[in-house]
Amino acid sequence: MALSLTFTPPDFDTAELKNGPFAALEAVPADGIAPRNYHATSNYPEYAKLPGYGWVLAPESRMDAVLVADQGKLQVIEARNLKKGDMVVVGRTENGEEGIFVHSHCFERIAASTDKFTFRSRGTRETPFSRSYDELYKILKHDRDHGHIVWVLGPAVAFDKDSREAMQGLIASGFCHALMAGNALATHDIEAAHFGTGLGQNIYSQELQSMGHYNHLDILNEVRRAGSIRESIKVLGIKDGIIKACEDHDVPYILAGSIRDDGPLPETIGNVYESQDRMRQHARKATTVITMATQLHSIAFGNMTPSYRVMPDGEIRPVYFYVVDMSEFSADKLANRGSAQAQAILTNVQDFIVNLWNYMRKKD
């Protein structure tokens, strides 16, 4: 399958780029301190012109990090992870004037209309998303075997019987290579498996259960008593659910902690920088990301995800990023913070995931 977007490289034969200067490099003065006038990265493909090597592409990127040059190669490193003596690219222009080029128009679609003004040029609540679904079906089919699909889930996915089953099916069928979430998603998913409730409501009828507000607290207590989620699945006899599917199919899940957490579960990472580093491992490999009903996790993971991947065969391909939410706020906020490739699908997440799974299993 050909992906719907293809990479167009910069034209380095233009006078501005061919005759432009080499990028200036300055040494890191102390661990975790960038030189003044450092170049802050975007999530677009970025090049630096290095002496003896010419224009070099950073093999990955992310928002708000720095470029470190070493023997003709570039690394994108968070400032807190810099080591004294690292050679950092400095300069704050982006069109070759200082040996730095940010390639922001590398994956643009060719528009059917050449009109400068058109109605409905971006996705809103009035947009029909049928084409987005069709594209997503193809991408997931392709990336199941040729990519790294990352899901970023809010707890709403676990509050409905059908959406839990749909996500479980997608994981079991290979359409999820890593799952990012918080303490709440895992807690309420295990609550649903054991008690049939989410925050005390029946996950099918949505009826409140007597003393149901204790259920997620009791689950947290029992999982902590067992010592781990994996052990609690055995002890509690958990038979289904999103986390159970991840355990059964060796899909890594990262639970990033919050000051709002109850418990938390033993696997929840309380140190935000540790959880960021763990999430970053999958952001670096991601080829498709789907975030659902979680504003903070969507923005966080979007900011650490490149807009492109350099594949083992040298192909440069886009990273597809979908934000599924009832509100335009998440997608707009993410775009405003630099992840402009994020595509919104504005719908109820339970409807989205069930529709997606119903199609994928029919065509699988």
Rank of each mutant, 00 (worst) to 15 (best):
Pro10His: 06
Phe352His: 08
Ile171Lys: 10
His39Gln: 10
Glu207Gly: 04
Arg361Gly: 01
Gln343Phe: 08
Gln201Val: 15
Val157Leu: 14
Gly147Thr: 07
Tyr204His: 12
Ser113Asn: 09
Pro312Ala: 11
Ser4Ala: 12
Pro306Gly: 12
Val68Glu: 05
Gly169Arg: 10
Val289His: 00
Phe119Gln: 15
Asn358Ile: 12
Leu3Phe: 00
Leu3Met: 09
Ile243Asp: 08
His213Trp: 12
Glu274Leu: 07
Phe175Ile: 05
Pro155Phe: 08
Gly123Trp: 03
Asn271Ile: 13
Tyr53Phe: 12
Asp13Ala: 13
Val102Ile: 10
His188Pro: 12
Ile254Cys: 06
Tyr38Glu: 03
Arg230Ser: 14
Ser298Trp: 10
Leu208Glu: 13
Lys73Gln: 12
Arg164Ile: 13
Ile100Leu: 01
Tyr214Lys: 08
Leu17Ile: 05
Glu328Ile: 01
Ala331Ile: 06
Ala226Ser: 14
Thr41Phe: 02
Thr93Ser: 04
Gly182Gln: 07
Met211Tyr: 15
Glu98Val: 03
Ala172Ser: 15
Ile269Thr: 00
Asn43Lys: 02
Asn81Ile: 00
Lys239Tyr: 15
Leu82Glu: 08
Arg131Leu: 07
Ser4Thr: 09
Lys234Ala: 10
Tyr44Glu: 10
Thr8Ile: 10
Gly338Glu: 03
Tyr322His: 03
Pro35Ala: 10
Trp357Phe: 03
Lys138Arg: 05
Tyr253Asp: 00
Leu236Arg: 10
Ser132Tyr: 03
Lys84Met: 12
Arg62Met: 15
Ser42Arg: 12
Thr118Met: 12
Glu315Trp: 07
Asp13Trp: 04
Lys161Gly: 01
Ala79Phe: 08
Arg120Ser: 11
Val88Cys: 00
Asn355Ser: 15
Ser330Lys: 06
Glu328Ser: 09
Asn202Lys: 11
Phe101Asn: 00
Arg125Asp: 01
Asp162Leu: 15
Thr287Phe: 10
Val88Ala: 09
His194Ser: 04
